[in-house]
Structure formats: structure tokens, C-alpha cells
Amino acid sequence: MLKKNCTLELDGNREELTVILRGEIDHYTAAWVRSEIDASISELRPKRTVFVLSEIDFMDSSGIGLIMGRYAKMQNIGGTLAVRDPSDRVERIFKLAGLERIIELEKGEKNNEN
């Protein structure tokens, strides 16, 4: 197995699933995290899933597909999805696809300069 430049931390209960992604999101890493996250959503069926993206160093349009896909999955089980603390750069990519109009963007107290 080849090394992935991305780590995934999942923590949750029936109320809320927190997905912390660190490193790089591209087509390669998105395919892997997607199946892990989906397994957690199917198992827990949380009311809300929150993606914490403050420690993402790189993201391309694969990130849009990843968030859109999980958004659809959460809708299917009657839940919601939010993205927490994206860098300006990540937010800019989301906005290219108009993602900010359908998902909740949470900005915490942490400022990231990236």
C-alpha cells in the first residue's frame, strides 16, 4: 500500500459525527476517506455531520465531490452537514461550485492564514 498524504479522525454519536481531515485532499485521498466516512454515517446515522478542515494543506475539486456526496448522504437519512474552519483557499474552491449556498460554513475563533 502506498502512503497517503491525508489523515482522518472520526468521532461521534447519534447526535453528531465529527470528521477531522488533515493533510491533502485530492482524488486519491478522497476515494479512501469517502468510504471510511460513509461507513461511520451508515453505522451511527447521526443528525449532523461536521467536517473540520482547518488543517487541510491542499485541496482540489475532489474536495467538492467529497462534501457534496456526504451532504447527499446526510440528506438521505434526514440529517445535516456543516464545514468548520476552512482556510480562505478551501473556501474559495467551495465557492466556485456554489457550495456555500447549500452547506453551512462554520467559522470558529481560530484564524487560519493559509
Partner: peptide, 14 residues
């Protein structure tokens, strides 16, 4: 079906 968003060229252009 593989969650390609269709935003590749748009990202390159911007």
C-alpha cells in the same frame, strides 16, 4: 457516480 464534481476545468481557469 465517482463523485467527480465537474469543476476541474473551472478550477484550472480560475
Amino acid at each position: 457516480e465517482n463523485e467527480r464534481s465537474g469543476m476541474g476545468f473551472t478550477v484550472m481557469e480560475s
